[in-house]
Write a protein that binds this DNA or RNA. Structure first.
Lengths: 194, 194
DNA sequence: TCTGCTAACCTAGTCATCCTAGGAAGGAAG
DNA sequence: CTTCCTTCCTAGGATGACTAGGTTAGCAGA
């Protein structure tokens, strides 16, 4: 019998593709085994268990996503960078819903070998805000607000949470515009706040 | 043998409690049956299937949540109303993570008998923005941005997505403050936008 | 009190999935 | 050609969703 040529990487990639098709939660070891024309048990030589597989998909997706965002932001600053970051973020989340869901799943970071993809996203975000001249703790607050908005908007949109009365792309552009205005008029923490 | 006194409502409530304990995705018919000291099959006389059960939990949670928000917002307007809305929203999401996850799960609204809880949230949000004097389409855009931020922040916080370097409550207060500023300086859509 | 009916609940079974233990075969290194 | 590791297998246990069809509790009416 011919070997299927299984690898942790190939399995992870197939799992990510499957997640984009049927949803991250519906990725099953059995379905992957069928995809490779192989028995379920065979996958366990390459992947510890389902949680391990999910973690691998999360790392893969986080890496892909941060690469795309980095490429989009490169050479831009201020409002341009903000729009590029947001556009790349939303584009990835909508194009790869399963992969994106993976990045948002509770991953035990202690289990992750390569933390770089997760850390780079933070660095990119902080870098993007450099143009707005914020100091801590405003900087962290602004980062959190941006992340929340990006994640919230895309996940609500992907879940069909918005009615169709108003174009979703236009709303998004407007949201970016609004966030830019917000960052330029950021209400700085007064001294009595810590 | 004594009857357990099962009801769709009792099952739904138990499922919601279980969801808050172990997570919405980990709610299982078997576990609920065990909780009632009953066989799995018995639940299917009251609830069609797992999806039906999840939908019921979602409706229950949405109703509870909108009631709390409505109570918090009542009699307030402007920034006060915004802070009250946001506080009630976040408080519910953090106190009842399983229930909150249920409200965010993709619910086939065609299956839901009572749509009122879902519609009331929208009404409350639009009402809250009345003080900021926005016209369409800015109004819808602002609503979407607020919902995105609230949902994004609470779900990132619940998932442990924020580092511990900066107090999460303080960041939240600052975010509300920032959103208030944003709403008062909202960049209105110019005429060439539709 | 007895009869009947309608649920509520059960037994028994199917199917899908995750996962483990241990065996056989491909194929590269010696 | 032999050795040995890895890949993939068979076999099987456990849990969970769900169905078909039977039994019984407990109430309504005679």
């Amino acid at each position: 019998m011919a070997r299927a040529g299984l690898t942790a990487e190939r399995i992870t990639r197939a799992a990510a593709d499957l997640a984009d098709e049927v949803g991250f939660d519906n990725v099953t070891v059995s379905a992957l085994a069928r995809h490779f024309g192989v028995k379920d048990a065979s996958l366990y030589s390459h992947v510890k268990n389902l949680r391990d597989l999910r973690t691998r998909v999360a790392v893969l997706a986080a890496g892909e996503m941060v690469d795309l965002i980095a490429a989009a932001v490169a050479g831009r600053s201020g409002k341009d960078a903000l729009a590029a970051f947001a556009g790349a973020y939303r584009s990835y989340a909508l194009r790869h819903p399963g992969r994106y869901a993976a990045t948002q799943s509770k991953v035990d970071l202690a289990q992750v070998a390569d933390l770089a993809p997760f850390l780079r996203t933070g660095e990119l975000t902080y870098g993007m805000l450099r143009a707005y001249d914020l100091a801590e703790p405003d900087l962290t607050d602004a980062v959190r607000l941006l992340r929340s908005t990006f994640h919230g908007y895309t996940s609500l949109e992907a879940a069909g949470g918005f009615q169709h009365s108003r174009d979703v792309d236009a709303s998004w552009d407007q949201a970016i515009e609004a966030l830019h205005v917000l960052l330029t008029h950021w209400p700085r923490a007064s001294k009595e706040e810590r």
